[in-house]
Design a protein around this nucleic acid. Structure first.
Length: 429
RNA sequence: GCCCGGGUGGUGUAGCCCGGCCUAACAUGCGGGCCUGUCGAGCCCGCGCCCCGGGUUCAAAUCCCGGCCCGGGCGCCA
């Protein structure tokens, strides 16, 4: 019998319904009280004319505090003057949990709150329809990603998040105490998904947390993020770029079709990009950047350079053929030109969303590549062994969920795209 | 790690430059009252704030120093 507000329409005039939710607003006009009930799917107006409803119900409604949780039973009444064309005349109001006052945050959004205040009181902040809409879209992104990859023959896997060694080098790792040993939180499932290629899984994906102990403090970095990772056997970088392109288009379409209500609340339109995405080489990127900034060949593109390139190319595009030495040890160099690699980054404007490559699949070459970066092959032995007994050529990528969401919803802070963000200073809630 | 910027009622802001008229203002909220069509309801009464410590000064929300907390940028990265 319990219904969501969105399931009620003026056509149900006269029907008895039960609604459960939060008291969003109380408008007491004296002889007439309006309660706005909010649930996951929307709002419903509860109308109490003094002369019509039970006096006990009336006085209870008058004293109700905003954001209290209630269960209301009553009759649907088609009413042109009411929002959405209907209202509920209550027979019974049950206060399941009274909210304390004052609220640390205005859920009705009349008074703005800073992101920091919002995150401190995230449970309340998340009650705001605009905020909740972000996570409904996030749900759709993950759901359609799973749909798409499963359809393409991928197997979903989970790999360890507690690992023994600094996997890729480069970024800082969080140390954790693992009984009598030191361990780390994994920065990416990279090594494990490659081992699964050796194991014959052919195509895998993982959606899971990645941890980076970088001291960055920006609107596009988190210390705990969610990554969509894939790895594919018997293909090269071109093959997995196509998967990535297809996935982005599929997901944008799916969000645009299935999330109309939430996109409207957020006041954004999701553009479905055209395939194939534009590809520019690292060398071409340098050329564009050189209008403002001279970056020596072999160095990473600066934020400034990416902004310039983003302005020129825009939307979704790939930067390909990166210098081998600034990519991780597992990326495959071109045979005929080993100083560049079969690697790519997927960009949205100036924001890096994903990066991937064809991988080195020959043991000796991999050991050499690890050495050339000053790393010790011995600490990668568990990984290297999987390259000794038959591993197919393979390629893959990792895509940042929060960044992807940020780019399609035009959010200006990555913290908006995650429920309980972990950043340089935030560990609570 | 480096570099900027900021902490004023529960929330969001004004005041700070140029110290005194600040007994700190506005909005929202909260408490109480009036009100039968609100939809940011309206009206009346009330409540509630200068991050901490030191200094300068006749006088500090305002200037200086230190601390704590926070925001942002860069580098690095998804």
């Amino acid at each position: 019998m319990r219904k969501f507000t969105a399931e009620i329409s003026p056509k149900m005039d006269g029907e008895k319904v039960k609604l459960c939710g939060w008291i969003h607003e109380v408008r007491d006009l004296g002889g007439l009280i309006f309660l706005i009930l909010r649930d996951r799917e929307g709002f419903a107006q509860i109308t109490l004319p003094k002369k019509v409803v039970d006096p006990e119900v009336f006085s209870k409604a008058r004293k109700i505090k905003r954001e209290s949780v209630v269960e209301i039973e009553g009759e649907v009444k088609a009413e042109e003057k009411a929002p959405n064309g209907f209202e509920i005349i209550p027979k019974k109001i049950l206060i399941l949990n009274e909210a304390d006052t004052p609220l640390p945050l205005d859920v009705t959004e009349k008074v703005p709150a800073e992101l920091d205040t919002r995150l401190d009181n995230r449970f309340l902040d998340l009650r705001r329809p605009k905020v909740q809409a972000v996570f409904r879209v996030r749900h759709q992104v993950l759901k359609s990603t799973r749909d798409f990859l499963c359809k393409e023959g991928f197997i979903e896997v989970q790999t360890p998040k507690i690992v023994s060694t600094a996997t890729e080098g480069g970024t800082e790792l969080f140390p954790v105490s693992y009984f009598e040993r030191e361990a780390f939180l994994n920065q990416s499932p990279q090594l494990y998904k490659q081992m699964l290629m050796s194991a014959g899984f052919d195509r895998v994906f993982e959606i899971g947390p990645i941890f980076r102990a970088e001291q960055h403090n920006t609107t596009r970095h988190l210390n705990e993020a969610t990554s969509i990772d894939i790895e594919v056997s018997f293909t090269d970088h071109e093959g997995v770029m196509k998967v990535l392109e297809d996935l982005i288009v599929y997901t944008c379409e799916s969000v645009s079709n299935e999330c109309e209500k939430f996109l409207k609340i957020l006041n954004v339109e999701v553009e479905v990009p055209e395939k194939p995405f534009e590809r520019i080489s690292y060398d071409e990127a340098l050329k564009i950047a050189s209008k403002k900034e001279e970056i020596p060949w072999g160095e990473d593109l600066s934020t400034n350079a990416l902004k310039l390139i983003g302005e020129e190319i825009g939307n979704f595009y790939f930067i390909v053929d990166w210098p081998t030495k600034i990519k991780p040890f597992y990326v495959m160099p071109y045979e005929e030109k080993p100083e560049i690699s079969k690697s790519f980054d997927l960009m949205h404007s100036w924001l890096e969303l994903a990066s991937g490559a064809q991988r080195i699949h020959r043991y000796d070459a991999l050991v050499e590549s690890i050495r050339s970066r000053g790393l010790n092959p011995e600490s990668f032995q568990f990984y290297l062994d999987s390259f000794r007994f038959g591993i197919p050529p393979h390629a893959g990528w990792g895509l940042g969920v929060e960044r992807f969401l940020m780019s399609i919803l035009k959010l200006n802070n990555i913290r908006e795209a995650t429920l309980f963000p972990r950043d340089r200073i935030r560990l609570v809630p």
